[in-house]
Structure formats: structure tokens, C-alpha cells
Design a protein around this nucleic acid. Structure first.
Length: 886
DNA sequence: TCTCTGCAAAGAGGA
């Protein structure tokens, strides 16, 4: 029997005499998830360790428990083959179990500090890729050369020599080949490389290097002359065996570790066992052990405590990370088995670190909840199936040069969040238990409805799921680590309120036709610590940013340009190029960078020296904040970081960029959309907003807007900018649709002749759509088209994606229809907004008034609001908006 | 049923 529920209470452990001698037991009372009834589970023997980890409120799953009838009530007890899982919804990565078994503190250090760029790591990555290539039947020489080439930037930053790296990788590859040949298995079908494995049952995920006849194979590029694999390596392979057992009919009873460096060890000098491949047997004891280790991690993460190292058996004197461990322990004043060195950062910084650490980890839990959506199979459970495209019909697959596969299918035409360029889980219909591969979306919803993805292995393409990645959360932690632990006290002073930011604006005028922009530039150039540029819609903040960057460059400074989204980074670059700056390196993935910026993109493959010097010698580097946290970018330092759309960035997200520089300039608008987070935590407020409130004198408001007619900007200015916003010129103030070529405003219906109009079609909200509003929006759009406004000059904004789809069906294709969130940053001559809500404004989407600000301020010459006037009037802010618009 | 973008991930070493 399986039982799962929330822990209500845990008894003290006790020792009892049984037929088999003395035994330990712990009793756990659970409220069952299914029945909501209370029941008791008795944990025996080693499973009592789980009892020690449990706290009321935590979840527990017990699989294959024995059932007892005790005084008429059903009780459960662990027996042969029972598996106990603490907090099963917390998805632990297999490599983390490996690190934890080695030393729990190592797990924590890896998490907060990331793994630094180092030659063994880069070589390891290359050899793993070659391993995959060989399993897929690729020629060794070609694979080695290609994979070394691809690591060009990393190798260059390390100053590594290509020839010796290639030679070394070749030796490792030969060890792999030797192993492949000596096996009796020759058919490729027996192998499966780099398989993504996700366990719902045990709360585990990972990528097995290879699976051979259903058993895990792990590649290690180190040497091991013992006969047995290293324990932590066995643990890793056993985790994969556990997951494979869940998905297949049986749990594999052996695993293989492949130590490829053994092949290069001089036989004359070593007496040990130099065969690279070492098999080991996987018994029930080891399977239960790895699960208990996984449980320890899940329990520790549940209360977010910090491991000390005493939890494990590791000997600090043998540990390569001993120095790092002591330094981190010292700086954060954490208890540590290795001890502490150095002085602790001030208490306020430790509190700050802790506060944001918890916020990021809370966010991580929300990412984990998205895994649960992967295993919802039935249509009813797929209520929010916009995270997946299901019911695809495979239409073909072919092998590409370099061993990857192109997979094709036709879709059902359903809408989802999946977009071209996304990393997704491509599967045969079951992303968890079936055949699934990480894949890249190459094409989506062409005219023929065909979907094209590329993956390492062929899969019958029947379903695509968004792959919940922890990359962002991981990088927020490393940014926090870098800022708090490695920056100087002086750098941190104003961030922690110990000193006012110093600004000595430069004297000379830079922008002579806009006083606020000019002052912003002069402040930014004269900032000792940081300066803040507050740019409401249409105030030329991107131009101001580009001018700031150009001025810094003229003074010989090295500048980092960053923003949360690729789009914002590319926009900033575009403005900089217009300023005549072209000595630029755009750091980012091919799919992320806009087509017209590809020529500036750093090619990370090729000659190491060339790759590295392109990055190191660039006076301007542009990257998203997520990329700023990458290993390569963390090796770089800048005089100044200039961050655009800073109001959209979490505090640690901003730190990822600014921690790479001596000083920084944040450009943004905290009255527009805040950072996107899943959980409501300290991450919801941007660093920009915090600093602008703490140090208004370090900020400059750009108060002249070049976008909206005066009639349009009136309400947003009053409501969101204390009335400080005004049109830059008379022409801006008085613009109207009849200014557009071939537009005759007398052809517009009377109610649309004003620059701002309100239409109440009297519809009813249905789910997240309102068909009557969609029709009214379409009418308004048609009216403007009839009056001569061209399709590309009209935009439609709705709060929900469902309504966006509803409207999109009805209007010509060249009319842009999108959610508020995705419209931020752009503008149109004519904007029509659909509010959807009728009856009540009780939806979180209406709570944040900044969203309305964004919607209204996209319009230049005409703005039409379509909504239910009575409903909107039920909220003061919206009531004022209706009054203004009517 | 709220909105959303980033990211390949996992990769090493030795008493």
C-alpha cells in the first residue's frame, strides 16, 4: 500500500524487542492526502532517520508499506521493500545527492557560489559531450575536434592550450572507445545517451550520462585505481537506477562507472586496477541509502537551514574546497566543520543575505511545483495545459550533421506559452515515464501548423512541455554570494545604508535640448557609487542610457550593458549603435539575440585566444542579467555597469550585473511592471525602487515625454508621476490621428473622435475572455482602419492571454494584439485596451495599478478603453480612469 | 485559470 499525507506529529524514537532482536521505531501521524483522515505510520530501522527529519506540516510519502489492522483502525508500517520519501514535491537533483553524500556543506557551497571556471571542469564537459557523440556512433576524431572547438571561449579564458587539450580529450575518448568495443553489445540501440530522468515518486531528477540495457553508466574523467567505484559515484548511479526502476519494469541491479583517466595512467608507476570500467551491484540497501540522503536534503531545504558539514563523514583536510569553505563560513559567520577564516561581514549584511537566500529558495519551491504539472496526464488535470502542447501527430525525424536529431510533428492549433527558441521536454506523450528528451524549439505554428524541434536523441514527438529550469534561481544565489561576500565594504556601504551615495555631476552639457536628460547624464558620469535614472514612458530613457554609455566610453571606461530580457538588451544596443558606437560584444545564446545584433554576438566556439580576447578586450559588453551570472561572465570586470529596465529586476538579479562593476547606473521606471516572480517574497521589489526611495537625491526623473498626446498622458501623469510628466513639445501635446498620412478623422464615428475614448459594450466575462468586448474592440479597430490608419499602427492590449487570442482571431494579422506585460517597451499610434472584467475586479491582475499605467501609456495619438464602466468604477483608481476617459 | 522571461545541464579532483 502507498500512503501520502501531511505530518501531524512525530513520536520520540524508541527501542523495542522483536522476534528478530532489538529494533528502533518512530511513529508518525499523518493526515492522508486523499481521505483527509488521520493515520499512523510506523517507521522501523533506518527509516527512523526520516522520522528525525520530519516536522509537522511537512509531507511524507510511504510506498509499499505493510498494512496493519490495529484495534479497528488501519495503520501502516515499513517492511521489506518499503520506500519512505520526505517532501516528495521537492525535486532534488541527482548531482546534489552526490555532493551531499560527499559533504553536506559542499552541497551548500556549490549552491551559493556556483562552480568556477576551471580546466578540469571544462575538460570534463568536453569529454562528456564526446561520450554522447560516440554513443550516437560518431567518428572519434570529428567529435573530439568539434567539442574542443565549441569550448573555445572557456579554454581561452583559462589560457589553456588547444593542442594539449585535444590530445588529452583524445586519450579519454580512446578509453571510452575501448570500453565500447570490449562490450559484447554492438548494436547502438542498446545505449541511450544523456537521458533526462525525472522521478515523481522519489522527488529526484537528473541526467544520466548513458543507460545501457536499462542500467546506468556514469562517466568520470578522473582516475580511480581501486577495484570499486568511489562511493559518491555509486550513489549518483544508484539514484539513476532508482528512477529507471520507477519508469521501467525492474530496477537495474548493476551500474557502471567509467573512469577515463585510468587509460592515461602510467602502468609502470601504478599497481592498482587500471581498467576504466568498474561495475558495481545495486542492492536494496544502497537504493534505500540514496533515498535517505535525498530525504536529508529535502528536509533541510524545507526549513532552509544551512548545513555545517558535521552531518557527513567527510574529512576536511582531504577536501579541495577547504579554503573556500572556511572563507565562506568566516564571512557569513556560519558554523562549519572546516572552521572559519577572516572576519565576518557586518550583521546587517548577514541578515540581508539570509533574507534573500530565503526568498530565492521560496521561489525555487515554486519552480519545483511546476514539475508536478509535467505528470498531470488526464485532460481534466491539464486545466492549465498552456504549459504543454499535447496530442501532437509525429510527421518525421531525421539525423542532422553532428549527431543531433530534428523531430517534426503537426500540432492541434492549441495556444501555449511555448515559443520558438525555448528549451522544452519533447516526449512520446509521457514526459515523466515515457521517452523524453530536452529539446530546442526551432519552429512553431507555421502556416502548415508544423512543429520542429531538435534534440540529442530521436523521440516520437507527441508532446512538448515547458522544462522548469532552476537556472535563474541558481544565478540569483551566486549573485547574492558575489555581492555580499566578495565586494569591498566601500562598494557595499550605500547599498546597506552606511553611507550616502556620492555624486559629483560633471560640468559640461552633453544633451542641450532636454534639461532632465542632460542632468541625468551628468549625474551618471559623476557617480562614485551609483546613479538612478527614472524614465517614465516615452521620456527617451534608452537614448539617455546610450548617451551615458557613449560618454563613459569616451572617458576610456569599460562598460557592461545589461537588462533582464534579451529584448531590452538588444534595444539598448541598438540605441548605442545609433550613437555611433560599434565596438560592441553581445554575450548571449544564438536563439536569444535578435537577428540584427547577431553580427556583434560573441561566438564562443573557435580559437580560444581569439574568443577570449574578443570578450576581454571589448570596451562594451552587453548581456542579460542571467548571462552575467554565467561562469564566463563572472571572470570579467567593468568600470561601470549600466542596467536598463531596472524596475523589472529582482534585487539579486540586479546584483548579478552590478557586482561585476566598480559603480553602476540603473535606468528604469518602478511605476511600470515589477519583476516577474512566482512567489510573493522580497524578490517582488526591485533594487531600483528600493534605492530610489532611499536616495531620491541620487536619482533624476526624466519629465519630458515624446510619445503621448497631452490628453492621453494626463491621467497617467497625475496618477503615477505626481503630475510631473509633460509633453516635450507642442507638437507632441497636440498630435492626433489625422496627422497620420491619408487619415481623415471625420470618417471616424463620433465617439472615437476624441484622443481618449471609453466604450462600454455591456458584455459579460466568460472565464478570461469577454466576447462582447472582443467584438467592440474589433469594431473600433475597423473604424480606425476605415479612417485610413494602417494596420501596423494599431495595437490591442488585454490583461489575459485568453482574451488576446479571442481578439487576435478577429482583427487583421498586422494589428498587434498582446498582453500588457508583453507590450511593455513598445508603443503604437492607436491603442485599444480591453479590460474583460465584469461584475467584479477580484483578480490579482487588476491589483497592480502599474499594469494599467503600462497599458495606457503605449498610445501616441488615440486611446480607446473598452470595459464595463460600473465594474471598473468599483475601484477608486479605475473609477478615476473611467472619469478621465469619458 | 493572472501576468512573464531567463536559461541546455551537468560537467572534476584524492586520501
Amino acid at each position: 500500500m502507498n500512503v501520502r499525507g501531511v505530518v501531524v506529529g512525530v513520536s520520540d524514537g524508541k527501542t523495542v524487542s522483536t522476534d528478530y532482536g532489538e529494533s528502533e521505531l518512530v511513529e508518525v501521524s499523518l493526515r492522508e492526502a486523499e481521505s483527509a483522515e488521520e493515520t499512523t505510520v510506523t517507521l522501523w530501522g533506518k527509516w527512523t532517520e526520516a522520522g528525525a527529519l520530519l516536522e509537522p506540516g511537512m509531507e511524507l510519502a510511504v510506498y509499499d508499506a505493510d498494512v496493519d489492522e490495529y484495534r479497528g483502525e488501519t495503520r501502516y508500517t515499513t517492511g521489506d521493500g518499503t520506500m519512505v520519501v520526505v517532501e516528495p514535491d521537492f525535486i532534488v537533483d541527482v548531482t546534489n545527492v552526490r555532493a551531499w553524500v560527499d559533504c553536506p556543506r559542499m552541497y551548500y557551497l556549490n549552491k551559493i557560489g556556483g562552480i568556477e571556471l576551471a580546466e578540469p571542469v571544462v575538460k570534463g564537459t568536453i569529454v562528456h559531450e564526446v561520450f554522447g557523440d560516440l554513443l550516437r556512433g560518431r567518428d572519434v576524431e570529428a567529435a573530439v575536434e568539434d567539442r574542443v572547438r565549441e569550448a573555445g571561449l572557456d579554454l581561452g579564458l583559462l589560457g589553456a592550450d588547444v593542442e594539449s587539450m585535444t590530445e588529452s580529450v583524445r586519450q579519454h575518448a580512446q578509453a571510452i572507445e575501448g570500453w565500447l568495443q570490449q562490450g559484447t553489445l554492438t548494436e547502438r540501440d542498446e545505449y541511450r545517451s544523456e537521458q533526462t530522468l525525472i522521478s515523481r515518486r522519489y522527488g529526484l531528477k537528473g541526467r544520466a550520462d548513458a543507460v545501457r540495457r536499462g542500467a546506468p553508466v556514469e562517466l568520470k574523467t578522473g582516475k580511480n585505481t581501486k577495484r570499486d567505484p568511489r562511493f559518491k559515484d555509486k550513489v549518483q548511479a544508484t539514484c539513476y537506477a532508482l528512477i529507471l526502476g520507477e519508469h521501467g519494469e525492474t530496477t537495474p541491479d548493476t551500474g557502471t562507472l567509467l573512469y577515463t583517466k585510468n587509460a592515461a595512467v602510467d602502468r609502470a608507476e601504478t599497481s592498482g586496477d587500471l581498467s576504466p570500467a568498474k561495475d558495481f551491484s545495486i542492492g536494496s540497501g544502497l537504493l534505500a541509502f540514496v533515498l535517505r540522503a535525498r530525504n536529508e536534503i529535502a528536509a533541510m531545504e524545507s526549513d532552509m537551514s544551512v548545513p555545517t558539514g558535521y552531518e557527513g563523514e567527510a574529512k576536511c583536510e582531504y577536501c579541495f574546497e577547504q579554503d573556500t569553505c572556511m572563507a565562506v563560513s568566516g564571512r557569513l559567520d556560519q558554523e562549519s566543520k572546516a572552521g572559519q577564516v577572516g572576519t565576518a561581514v557586518p550583521e546587517s549584511e548577514r541578515t540581508y543575505f539570509d533574507r534573500f537566500y530565503r526568498a530565492v529558495e521560496t521561489e525555487r519551491r515554486e519552480v519545483h511545483r511546476e514539475y508536478a504539472k509535467l505528470w498531470r496526464q488526464s485532460p481534466e488535470e491539464r486545466a492549465d495545459a498552456d504549459r504543454a502542447l499535447v496530442g501532437l501527430e509525429p510527421t518525421g525525424q531525421r539525423e542532422l550533421d553532428g549527431g543531433r536529431w530534428e523531430l517534426r510533428a503537426t500540432g492541434t492549433g492549441a495556444v501555449s506559452k511555448i515559443r520558438t527558441g525555448d528549451l522544452v521536454l519533447a516526449s512520446d506523450g509521457d514526459p515523466v515515464g515515457g521517452n523524453a528528451e530536452l529539446a530546442r524549439v526551432e519552429r512553431l505554428g507555421g502556416a502548415d501548423g508544423e512543429i520542429v524541434v531538435t534534440a540529442d536523441e530521436p523521440v516520437e514527438l507527441r508532446r512538448l512541455d515547458i522544462y522548469p529550469s532552476e537556472l535563474t534561481t541558481d544565478r540569483l544565489l551566486t549573485a547574492l554570494h558575489d555581492a555580499v561576500l566578495t565586494q569591498s565594504p566601500e562598494w557595499k556601504d550605500p547599498l546597506f545604508g552606511r553611507a550616502e551615495p556620492e555624486i559629483d555631476p560633471i560640468e559640461e552639457t552633453v544633451i542641450d535640448n532636454n534639461a532632465a536628460q542632460d542632468e541625468a547624464v551628468r549625474m551618471a558620469l559623476g557617480a562614485e557609487d551609483f546613479a538612478l535614472v527614472h524614465g517614465p514612458p516615452g521620456t527617451g530613457k534608452t537614448y539617455t542610457l546610450a548617451t551615458i554609455v557613449r560618454e563613459f566610453l569616451d572617458r576610456g571606461e569599460r562598460v557592461l550593458i545589461s537588462a533582464f530580457t534579451n529584448r531590452a538588451v538588444d534595444n539598448a544596443l541598438e540605441a548605442l549603435i545609433e550613437e555611433g558606437v560599434t565596438d560592441i560584444v553581445r554575450f548571449g545564446s544564438e536563439s536569444g539575440v535578435r537577428a540584427d545584433m547577431q553580427e556583434y554576438r560573441l561566438d564562443r566556439s573557435g580559437d580560444p585566444q581569439r574568443c577570449a580576447s574578443q570578450l576581454e578586450e571589448a570596451s562594451v559588453v552587453a548581456a542579460t542579467t542571467a548571462s552575467c551570472g554565467s561562469r564566463a561572465m563572472r571572470t570579467q570586470s567593468f568600470d561601470v555597469a549600466v542596467v536598463d529596465e531596472a524596475g523589472q529586476l529582482t534585487e539579486p538579479g540586479t546584483l548579478a550585473a552590478v557586482a561585476l562593476a566598480d559603480r553602476f547606473v540603473l535606468v528604469g521606471d518602478h511605476q511600470q511592471l515589477p519583476p516577474v516572480t512566482r512567489a510573493d517574497t522580497d524578490l517582488s521589489e526591485s533594487l531600483f525602487e528600493r534605492l530610489i526611495e532611499a536616495y531620491p537625491e541620487a536619482s533624476k526623473l526624466l519629465d519630458r515625454q515624446y510619445r503621448m498626446a497631452q490628453r492621453i498622458q494626463a491621467y497617467p501623469s497625475r496618477e503615477f508621476y505626481d503630475g510631473a510628466l509633460r509633453p516635450a513639445t507642442g507638437a507632441v501635446a497636440s498630435q492626433q490621428v489625422s496627422d497620420l498620412p491619408d487619415v481623415e478623422s471625420d470618417r471616424l464615428p463620433a465617439h472615437l473622435r476624441d484622443r481618449v475614448a471609453f466604450v462600454d459594450p455591456g458584455g459579460t466575462q466568460k472565464g478570461h475572455t469577454n466576447p462582447a468586448e472582443a467584438a467592440a474592440v474589433t469594431d473600433a479597430v475597423e473604424s480606425y482602419l476605415d479612417a485610413g490608419v494602417s494596420e501596423g499602427e494599431i495595437g490591442v492590449i488585454a490583461p489575459y492571454r485568453a482574451q488576446v487570442a479571442e481578439i487576435d482571431r478577429r482583427v487583421p494579422e498586422a494589428v498587434t494584439v498582446d498582453t500588457v506585460d508583453r507590450f511593455q517597451g513598445s508603443s503604437k499610434e492607436v491603442i485599444v485596451v480591453s479590460f474583460v472584467a465584469t461584475g467584479s475586479l477580484e483578480s490579482p491582475i487588476f491589483e497592480d495599478y502599474r499594469r494599467v499605467n503600462v497599458a495606457l501609456t503605449r498610445a501616441k495619438k488615440a486611446l480607446v478603453l473598452v470595459g464595463d464602466a460600473d465594474t471598473l468604477a468599483s475601484d477608486d483608481t479605475y473609477a478615476r480612469m473611467v472619469e478621465w476617459a469619458r
